[in-house]
Write a protein that binds this DNA or RNA. Structure first.
Length: 565
RNA sequence: GCGCUGUUAGCUCAAUUGGAUAGAGCAUCUGACUUCGGAUCAGAAGGUUAGAGGUUCAAGUCCUCUACGGCGCACCA
């Protein structure tokens, strides 16, 4: 249990006893400025306002009546009515001793675990994954890891775009070319070329457009030859996705494309019509809700075709009924906010019990603050991004480690490059628009993955030098201020993970890990570990724990560690 | 036009959700190794939190207005 929670329980109990009407909130927080103390409570000021009492008097009462745990200093009152708390070194040492026996490293377990379906990544068949997919993929993966760690049952779903109108145009060009074999090596490039050709033809020639529509209709009606082609496209695309997910270390429990819901769509629409939730307007089926927008929400086109919205409604039914979802999280960019408002509103009106949440993130922009394109005007391919990350890491590695053999260099470059990319992507608050630059995404200095990995490597190096065969596990004595700060930071890990998961914002965890790594480097400068026999076991234990927390924290961000750099 | 969202140091971002003197990195400048990995550390400089008003013991955070961005608004996904 974190020091904060330990104190929180006491203060909260005092609050309930004396001010039962106050809405619950965290009454204990870390001090922004440690000169005031380690933790502070603003309870007295809130209670004073609610009951029209003097805040300083209430603060004095709180300080005197509500005693902190053993080993803490007597709380003091300051400012308008803050109560400040300070933990003694021995109490911190005891808490760290408890932490080293805790396999969860202080990460709490939720009291009510839920079945959570995470819908993220969702690339389109027959198209290369591009930068636009990276945030959804990484954010979804990290959140899934954190929620799982907190005790939830998480089902990771990749909702592939495998059934849209693009297949009419693709089939048109592919069949016109005589259905050539799709080579595994350059499958995606080939498919993109066919799509481009079909698209250009259909846009410039109405007759071709009609043909494309007919191709799609034939596919959706189940024509064997076209189904065979479509399956080939899916298979080849899946290989491309698999390659990228493998390099990113991202996995899914269910890969279920839009096509899987094809047969459910008429029922979904009919059901909404029968229950007067949907209505027919200008030949299309729509849903209205002036509270959301003047324009209605379209679930069936006037030509009878279904839409993205219809598929999503069917997917909600599948996920609540078959996957038993208590909660569904959608990780997509901000442009889809309106769509999800409509989707959630419609699902709720139709009786959906699961909690529905849109975890949105800002759009990726180029340096000119316009949506990012590569030089030829197409979106920047994810595969090129990953390769560039590896190349940049390799260049730096060759410089720093000329002794490495080529195989080691390759594997380290791959790990460091992708780690940098992942960390940089998750460092900013997800709600912000994202200005893409190579320099930022693949930086190796400052608040970056290599900085944190270097701290981890330094912990491993010391343990190796100590000749330990197993994790050090001795009582911790804190003799230097740098040790004490480090120890208190270790005890905050659980709070950091819980905050990031509850807020659906991994950047909170990035901030914590950076702070921890920085503090470890400071500790490293002034606290010799192996040289002082009296402190050796205690410090080795602290070093080991720091390594454990760094490793666990990085792994929750989807970043693997390495033993030496 | 309506709606969503944003504006914090030269640049890129934090700020535990209303708490005390707004913090980091990059870039700039100055220092520290015969040492457990220098991919490190210590320090300097850099701010009217877009602007104005309001609520509050307390506002970067909440409310109102203004300015300037980004995005979305019926047959794409």
């Amino acid at each position: 249990m974190s020091l904060r929670v330990e104190l929180e329980e006491r203060v909260a109990a005092w609050a309930i006893q004396n001010f039962p009407d106050l809405p619950p909130e965290p009454w204990v927080r870390p001090c922004a400025d440690e000169r005031h103390g380690h933790f502070q409570s603003h309870l007295a000021m809130v209670a004073a306002k609610a009951t029209r009492q003097n805040p300083r008097e209430l603060a004095n009462r709180l300080a005197q009546e509500c005693l902190p745990p053993e080993g803490w200093e007597q709380p003091t009152v300051a400012g308008a009515g803050f109560v400040n708390y300070r933990v003694g070194a021995e109490a911190v040492g005891r808490a760290v001793d408890a932490l080293r026996g805790d396999l969860r490293l202080g990460v709490p377990k939720v009291s009510q675990p839920e079945n959570i379906v995470m819908d993220f990544s969702s690339p389109n068949i027959a198209k290369a994954m591009h930068v636009g997919h990276i945030r959804s993929t990484l954010l979804g993966d990290s959140l899934a890891r954190m929620l799982q760690r907190l005790g939830h049952q998480v089902t990771r779903v990749n909702h592939l775009g495998d059934w849209g109108t693009q297949f009419g145009k693709l089939l048109l060009a592919y069949r016109a070319a005589g259905r050539p074999p799709i080579e595994a090596e350059r499958a995606i490039d080939q498919l993109e070329e066919f799509y481009k050709k079909g698209h250009q033809e259909a846009e410039s020639d109405p007759a071709k457009m009609d043909q494309a529509r007919a191709e799609l209709a034939a596919l959706q009606a189940g024509d064997p030859e076209r189904l065979q082609d479509w399956r080939l496209f899916c298979e080849r695309s899946a290989e491309h996705f698999r390659n990228i997910y493998e390099r990113l270390g991202v996995t899914f429990d269910s890969v279920r494309g839009e096509s899987a819901y094809h047969e459910d769509l008429p029922k979904v629409v009919q059901d909404l019509l029968d229950r007067n939730i949907a209505e027919i307007s200008q030949g299309a089926v729509v849903i209205r809700n002036p509270a959301i927008s003047e324009e209605p929400y379209l679930i069936r086109k006037s030509d009878g075709a279904f839409l993205y919205a219809t598929t999503d409604l069917a997917a909600i039914q599948y996920r609540t009924k078959e996957l038993k979802a208590d909660r569904i999280l959608y990780v997509t960019d901000s442009r889809q906010q309106l769509h999800f408002r409509w989707l959630f509103d419609t699902a709720e009106r139709a009786g959906c019990q699961a909690r529905l949440e849109h975890v949105w993130f800002g759009t990726i922009l180029g340096p000119d603050r316009k949506p990012l394109k590569s030089r030829d005007g197409t979106p920047l391919k994810l595969i090129d991004l990953l390769n560039e990350a590896r190349e940049r890491a390799a260049t730096i590695l060759k410089n720093k480690r000329p002794d490495l053999n080529p195989a080691d260099l390759d594997s380290k470059a791959e790990l460091l490059g992708i780690a940098s990319l992942k960390y940089a992507d998750q460092l900013p608050n997800r709600n912000l628009d994202y200005v893409f630059t190579w320099e930022k995404l693949l930086a190796f200095d400052g608040n970056t993955a290599p900085y944190i990995l270097n701290a981890y490597v330094r912990t491993r190096s010391i343990l190796r030098k100590a000749g330990l065969t197993q994790q050090p596990n001795s009582p911790v004595k804190l003799s230097q201020p740098e040790e004490e700060v480090l120890a208190r930071l270790l005890l905050r890990f659980g709070d950091a993970v819980a905050l990031a998961a509850m807020d659906r914002k991994p950047h909170h965890l990035c901030g914590y890990l950076y702070e921890l790594a920085a503090q470890y480097h400071r500790f490293f400068e002034v606290c010799p570990v192996l040289q002082l026999p009296a402190l050796r076991d205690s410090r080795l234990t602290l070093v080991g724990l720091t390594g454990d927390v760094l490793k666990e924290g990085l792994s929750l961000l989807g970043i693997p560690t390495l033993e030496e750099m």
